[in-house]
């Protein structure tokens, strides 16, 4: 009887996490792995890991932040395993070049002023949300280092800087810099794609 009650409790907890955070966890995993099945697998591992966790979220961490932190560990485990695996099908997070140096050097002149950039101007009517997210997703994947990861946690998932620093292990100062570079690069990328954020249908 007690075992049945415990099993029901576990199913109910997982169902609640899936409904509330499943898509967010998946988006984050997909951004890192660029592979649908691998991202789904790691989300599954995350939820099962959360069930086994002896450290459920307390007052300091929201459930979402807690789940993201577990996911981050699972992704790191997977990356380590992939480095030691001869299997071709092992999908590791992209090792993107961290020399972003310099989106700032790209968009600004030596004198600190902006280089010419086509203004977004009137909204381009590209239509649906799906097109916007497709463009944004492509631009996010082109960002170097962990800029895309930090941007997604902040702007898409709406986490606080404090939570993001806790999940990713970057300092607050570094998070500001990474977000700044991500925004500069995304604006440029979306502009190049002919797609401004105001392009609502």
């Amino acid at each position: 009887m007690e075992e049945k009650w415990e099993a029901d409790r576990r199913h109910a907890a997982v169902e609640r996490w899936l409904v509330a955070h499943g898509d967010a966890l998946y988006r984050y995993a997909f951004l890192q792995l660029r592979h649908r099945e691998s991202a789904e697998d790691v989300v599954q591992e995350t939820l099962l890991g959360a069930l086994r966790s002896t450290h459920p979220p307390d007052g300091r961490a929201s459930e979402k932040t807690w789940l993201f932190a577990i996911l981050k560990h699972k992704l790191a485990d997977r990356a380590r395993a992939c480095r030691h695996s001869p299997l071709d099908q092992c999908v590791a997070p992209d090792d993107k070049d961290d020399v972003d140096a310099n989106i700032e050097d790209i968009v600004f002149r030596d004198n600190g002023r902006w280089r010419d950039q086509a203004p977004w101007g009137d909204p381009v009517r590209h239509g649906e949300a799906q097109a916007f997210w497709r463009h944004l997703s492509a631009c996010l994947q082109a960002l170097p280092g962990n800029q895309g990861e930090i941007f997604v946690l902040r702007e898409v998932e709406g986490l606080s800087l404090e939570d993001i620093c806790q999940i990713t292990g970057v300092s607050t100062t570094n998070a500001y810099v990474l977000l700044h570079r991500a925004r500069l690069a995304l604006r440029r990328c979306l502009t190049d794609a002919g797609f401004g954020p105001d392009s609502d249908p």
């Binding site: 898509d23 998946y26 988006r27 997909f30 649908r36 599954q44 799906q130 997210w133 898409v156």
Partner: peptide, 12 residues
Amino acid sequence: PDGLEQRLSTDV
């Protein structure tokens, strides 16, 4: 967020 790459499939 919309599109295949943004949502967890129901299989999971």
